[in-house]
Design a protein around this nucleic acid. Structure first.
Length: 275
DNA sequence: ATGACGAGCGTGGCTCGA
């Protein structure tokens, strides 16, 4: 038996929560999104794979729950969004470093946080499969751009959370069946090394800051009963700047959402910071 | 070894995902 609802660390009051969730189509997932927002009441949410243009985002329904909505959409694929209880002070769309990149995979917002600000970067990192096509070098070049952008953000010494679907399995213990992922872009040494370089800029992987436990996953394939078998992978990550990490209170993976009707194949990851 | 699922786009059967 395994835990359906995983909570790590001490749950204490006075916290501010930031969540990341690859929702796999916001229009197909609107009921689950609204139910989860009502249940989890996060302060800020980064969504990935909204698979919608900006005009198609179900904005009114989300606003009715008290959230401000910022989107960076694209027709059919990709697309990211930020939901927040308070309006952002500023929003940036697109990852810098390649003006020719048309894929909507990054949005960043800065929000008031007491006397400071909290900055949240929401990313949908390229999958990179199959190897041997242009998709894998695109993934690696995107990661290089991310590393460069993240280094600049860390230099600001802000409370900064860089979260999203990284499409990287960092270590063998982050997947149930490592043999299944050999030869996959998510588990390639180049992908994992690039993720390691990003961490080594000074980030803390929030989940690994609070637990070394195995079988902690954020994605289960729709096929072959992966969720029922707990054949998952941990690819949705929240990386914390030092200023964010020192405020970390707890981390939650809402695994139970994967068991809902019409689920996304990913589940929300929620980090709570001392307010 | 392959396919299994699912969403989007658009109404047939692709592409894309992980």
């Amino acid at each position: 038996m395994r835990l359906r609802h995983l909570v790590f660390g001490l749950n204490v009051g006075g916290t501010f929560s930031v969540a990341t969730w690859n929702i796999n189509g916001v229009k197909a997932r609107i009921d689950a999104l609204l139910a989860w927002l009502a249940e989890a009441k996060p302060d800020i949410v980064g969504l990935q794979e909204i698979k919608s243009v900006d005009e198609g985002f179900p904005r009114l329904e989300v606003e009715a729950l008290g959230y401000h909505v910022e989107t960076h959409g694209q027709k059919g694929f990709n697309g990211v969004a930020l939901l927040s209880r308070v309006s952002p002070l500023e929003v940036m769309r697109r990852l810098p470093g390649d003006e020719s990149d048309e894929q909507a995979r990054y949005i960043e917002g800065a929000y008031p946080f007491g006397t400071r600000i909290i900055r949240v970067g929401c990313l949908y990192l390229p999958n990179g499969n199959p190897l041997g096509t242009e998709k894998f070098p695109y993934k690696l070049s995107w990661m290089k751009r991310l590393e460069q952008h993240a280094a600049g953000r860390l230099a600001l010494e802000e409370i900064f959370i860089l979260c999203g679907d990284y499409n990287v399995i960092p270590q063998a213990e982050d997947c149930a069946e490592p043999d299944q992922w050999v030869g996959d872009a998510l588990f390639q040494p180049e992908s994992r090394q690039a993720y390691g370089r990003l961490i080594n800029l000074g980030f803390t992987d929030a989940v690994r800051a609070v637990t070394g436990a195995p079988h902690v996953y954020t994605f289960w394939d729709y096929q072959a009963g992966a969720y029922q078998k707990n054949n998952g992978i941990r690819i949705d990550h929240a990386l914390l700047s030092p200023e964010a990490a020192q405020r970390l209170r707890h981390v939650r993976i809402d695994s139970h959402v994967r068991g809902w009707e019409k689920p996304s194949d990913h589940v929300p990851v929620v980090v709570s910071l001392a307010a």
